[in-house]
Design a protein around this nucleic acid. Sequence first.
DNA 1: CTGTTAGCGCATTCAG
DNA 2: CTGAATGCGCTAACAG
Lengths: 345, 345
Amino acid sequence: MSTPPTSTTRPRLTIDDVAREAGVSKATVSRVLNGRGALMSPELAARVREAIDRLGYAPSPMAQALKRGRSRLIGLVVADVANPFSVAVLQGAEKACREAGYMLMLFNLGGDEAREREAIAALASYQVEGFILHTLGRDRQVLHDALERGKPIVLVDRALDAPLDLVGLDNAQAVPLALDHLLQQGWNDLLFVTEPMQGASSREERHAAFNAFVQTHAGQCRGRTAECAVHDDAALDQALRALRAEAGTRRPAVLAVNAPVGLRVAAAARRLGLTLGLELGLVSFDETDWAPLVGPGITTLAQPTDEIGRQAARCLVERLEGQPGEPRRFRLPARLVVRGSSQPG
Amino acid sequence: MSTPPTSTTRPRLTIDDVAREAGVSKATVSRVLNGRGALMSPELAARVREAIDRLGYAPSPMAQALKRGRSRLIGLVVADVANPFSVAVLQGAEKACREAGYMLMLFNLGGDEAREREAIAALASYQVEGFILHTLGRDRQVLHDALERGKPIVLVDRALDAPLDLVGLDNAQAVPLALDHLLQQGWNDLLFVTEPMQGASSREERHAAFNAFVQTHAGQCRGRTAECAVHDDAALDQALRALRAEAGTRRPAVLAVNAPVGLRVAAAARRLGLTLGLELGLVSFDETDWAPLVGPGITTLAQPTDEIGRQAARCLVERLEGQPGEPRRFRLPARLVVRGSSQPG
DNA sequence: CTGTTAGCGCATTCAG
DNA sequence: CTGAATGCGCTAACAG
């Protein structure tokens, strides 16, 4: 109703417009905008504020960024938005960033880790102030550069040997949680199924914790690992078949390294005619909407994904605001959600 | 290895640095950068290009944006990243944008449509050049403003009465595809389950198509609709119970408006002890990873999500590059993926 | 063909 | 306490 839908592109409202409207100088407007309004006559400040409201003025983040070298932008690089874990983290991070007054720029690797360098470069060129990285960090040089340019980095889920802040799951707590449960339920021939490690520390940590557990419980169970590439269903079938064949009187169960793998294991079990919870036990990392409904329900290790995202964002924002100190590592606990896939009967 | 990890924040590399390095003026560098290098002596251009490479210089999009009023940024507002459809579209759009040289700024409503205005305002203030909106568009004023400022908008999935570009599913094709199949399989007591419409045109279109189908097939089937709020499982149970109770000799089946609803229906069926594909038919919009594994497998109407996202991005980019003309509507076809939930036996 | 100049919108000195 | 002037990094007229 206010303005008719002219097709003339209305030029951007600038600080000059406000200054003119309020009958003051740009500097004064700028001061009001930046909270230094307390240092001037209250009436003037009020007049300026009014003009701002009347015009509906908002400063251009671009210009601000250019001037002060701070863009209030955070770059988020995600390994694969198709992965529910990534999405959940993204969700928490986006919210926390926004609450802290930052906007998120997203770059999705789509599973192609080779594009990581491109991602960081693109984001950096947009002057993001810092990075949240859910990715492999293969390209050390890029990280190095970013750091050198004073751009803090927070890693999510996957550690690097670099001295960086990290927030992720407490895998050393999570794995025994799952395996103790499996053992208690009588599953004693354990198979850890993972995608190729490729330097993903979370996978490696889970694997290590798995091996450690198996070793300390050598009397009660046996444990092996199967590494199956993303589309190699044949390999997975083969691994499960072998597990069954060599089980003897033992009862075979799988620990899946993440949700996509958990789903693939469920699919493989179906293909091979193995009933989950009966002929094959299964616990999978990552709680999902569908976990209760696949087969007899999949028992999961629920990650506090939202909290991980928020924590990552908080940590980064603290760094951006000058928090110094050694790299910090936040390890959040997993929660076991028991369902039919790990309970015979 | 190259540079030691100094903690001195190295200042940003500017066009002046390159100019100095190459012994030319900024303008010359700028020309090379903007493809106008053909108009000058080849050696000079080469020298500049070399300096650029040597220094690893990349222009600041911020400064460019400020200067030319074009940010090469596209704003994407998503209703809820927890919805697989949203994610899939996001994926396609992000890719297409990047290929066209744009970056995506993401704003997730997290199901809170009230924040839409905030989203658009925030994005607009960052000088995004256009919007891809997967949301309700309740706040007409905001859209109006955006358009007036010359920022094109492409709607995804949900139309508005406003004259805007739209890309979404061909619901008029999709619904009969599903219902014909259900009828053929002998399901003749049809229930359309949806979340509250709330002005979401895709839901309304699906509902309308459902009603139209039922009317033209009045002799062969009966059809009703249940509207169940997101967390109101009781209402859903009630609707399914009623469907069963009043079915008589008819065979009851559900058409779920989207993947989350489909999943909820599957959960409800389990709670009520109804076997999918036997006592209850089910077809759900949206193909997902888990559809094959829930119950006997859920029959789905697969949306070409990636293509929807790409198309939206393409359409927007065309507008940004000056393509004039009437609002365009792209309606992409769905594909029926038949599984156990719709096939007795 | 190339260099000089003037802003884009803003925050921040520095004078007054 | 306030205004005028300067420059962030870049592009696009202008000159030469």
